[in-house]
Design a protein around this nucleic acid. Structure first.
Lengths: 343, 343
DNA sequence: GTGAAAGCGCTAACAA
DNA sequence: TTGTTAGCGCTTTCAC
């Protein structure tokens, strides 16, 4: 087991009686090297168990072919799908991915970014944490011309790209649909309004109300973590309201589902008494009874496009100046919001 | 924006009129350096925006302080929690994590392992893909004394550690519970029996039947991908059986839930006509109606322990010879299996 | 307690 | 088409 010593290009070069640089070039199909030589080099390299030493190579080349990803949490179908999309694209282009979770904490996000920066990633793909206040922690990267692409939870940032859907429009459509079904008192359960996704959906909600002559009431807006517990709490809060709402628009499916379940336990009929619309089209939306009306979000596509944009920035010198890419969403109507059964 | 050039220890050394080696030592609190010097070094380094170059350092030191993780898929609550546990431990010890998904494909698993190996990870944390036939692809690492720790989906492997639960016992308990509720014809929906988790649960299922005088019937065992579609297919298959089962034990929650939903659509009463037990205690198990009886799996703990074991192997020279760690699971009984309502 | 110097393995400018 | 050579930035042995 003579396994401790790594085989280097020098070893290969010696075996072949040629120079290390030729080996180096041959290994990467340099056009100036003769075909046969390349074949010979690759053959013996393989045979000898040669393995490129990335560190030496990175040290020389000043780039790592590695892309960092910072996401709030991994445990959603949505995020896993986004990342699968990114992996596909980056692998095709010879990049690796380092994934890290901020756990929805701005503080942890900063430490993720720092760690990734210290790992000298070539670029960063980011979806912001719930309570990230500002994005100064990305300046270290930006100052070094390391491109940052935001997706989903994005932020104003000169020189950064963003990949999103039209959350305003989606919020508008969701609320409009509820109104269309006859709802007049619609609760909006949302997250931290610092985040574009929630702020925009909220704006859409308000506008839809306004356009239909429904007075906006701040007491109908519930800000939360949008997790399971938030859904349960919301249900309880609703049960205690003097005049109950007849519709709920939630900014994600997790909390919508929890609300439905909890409301169901209290004997409330969904959608007859209260109609519900969620957001994201997670698989769970098809499990809950009644099935959840929700907004479909092109997760895989978002991942692919964010990764592609980043790689473009990395490889082409020309700086694409389109800074925001907006993808298409769609409202998926299921039973949880259908008051007029036969519509 | 004079940002292209990195600050090196040489720059710091020059600024301080001392040697680079002293700076290098000072930065890592070498005991032979005077306290004040250390303080001065750190101060100016920070001030100048110095940042250690990992590649140079790795190149010298032959290790990367990075741990690779290979999982089948990211998109489950279970996996996300496992990984959160790993991150916590590894970060505490100054290690980074590179996560990659095999997408349940043995072929992709091989490529993940190779990529990680080429990235010179110091160790590997692995849960096997569905259809991984053998584990020869880990030999490259093992031959170089790079430790591999398996968790959840493990495999016989001399010199590797494994972190698991007692799947045999869990399968036994789940099946026993069903029998206890009066079930006599129990379908077992499971995954590829190559994987210990499924094989062991299956053994437990068979033993529980045997211990209760129920004849094992191969036709009652359905092998599948255990995804949503598998649940739907299983439900359809069951609906077409001449003599219907009165219980189902599924090897994960996703498929259990899909089965319940599909069976529900066909008007089957759960648990009265068919009782169901799942596995994993995913959040979805508390959403489906009726709530799913399932086996709770200490996900976070598994992650923490697997990571801790790996780091121990990395840091201590003595080779711990305990090769399998078994964690505690527990059966969580909910409505989906409760035939005797008031038990 | 600090410095000098060699070298980790690879790449690329320049030379041939 | 191939070889020579000079580092990339850091660590560490040996010397003082």
């Amino acid at each position: 087991m003579k396994s401790n010593k790594d085989v280097t290009i020098y070893d290969v070069a010696n075996a072949l009686k040629i120079s290390p640089s030729t080996v180096s070039r041959g290994l990467k199909d340099h056009p100036h090297i003769r075909k046969e030589t390349i074949k010979k080099i690759k053959a013996t390299a393989h045979e000898m168990g040669y393995q490129r030493n990335k560190f030496a190579s990175n040290l020389r080349q000043k780039h790592t072919n590695t892309i960092g990803v910072v996401v709030p949490k991994l445990n959603s179908y949505f995020m896993a799908t986004v990342i699968a999309g990114m992996e596909k694209v980056t692998n095709q282009h010879g990049y690796g991915l380092i994934i890290s979770q901020s756990q929805e904490s701005g503080k942890q996000e900063i430490s993720c970014v720092t760690t990734l920066f210290n790992s000298r990633v070539d670029g960063l793909l980011v979806s912001l944490a719930f309570d990230t206040k500002n994005i100064d922690h990305f300046n270290v990267l930006l100052n070094k011309n390391i491109p940052v692409v935001f997706f989903d939870r994005v932020s104003e940032c000169s020189g950064c790209m963003s990949v999103v859907i039209d959350n305003y429009k989606a919020g508008y459509e969701a609320t409009y649909h509820l109104i269309d079904q006859g709802c007049k008192r619609i609760v909006h359960l949302t997250g931290n309004l610092l985040r574009n996704v929630y702020a925009d959906r909220f704006r859409g909600y308000k506008q839809a109300l306004a356009d239909n002559g429904i007075l906006f009431d701040q007491k109908m807006v519930i800000i939360s973590d949008l997790n399971e517990q938030a859904g349960i709490d919301t249900a309880k809060k609703i049960l205690n309201m003097k005049s109950r709402p007849d519709g709920i628009f939630t900014a994600n499916d997790t909390s919508a589902v929890a609300t439905i379940v909890e409301l169901g336990k209290a004997g409330i009929k969904i959608p007859d008494e209260i109609a519900v619309v969620g957001f994201n089209n997670e698989p769970i939306s098809k499990v809950v009874q009644p099935n959840l009306t929700t907004v479909d979000y092109p997760a895989r596509e978002i991942g692919e496009i964010a990764a592609t944009s980043l790689i473009n920035k990395l490889t082409s010198s020309r700086s694409d100046n389109l800074s925001i890419i907006v993808l298409k969403h769609s409202l998926i109507v299921r039973e949880s919001s259908l008051k007029n059964k036969k519509s």
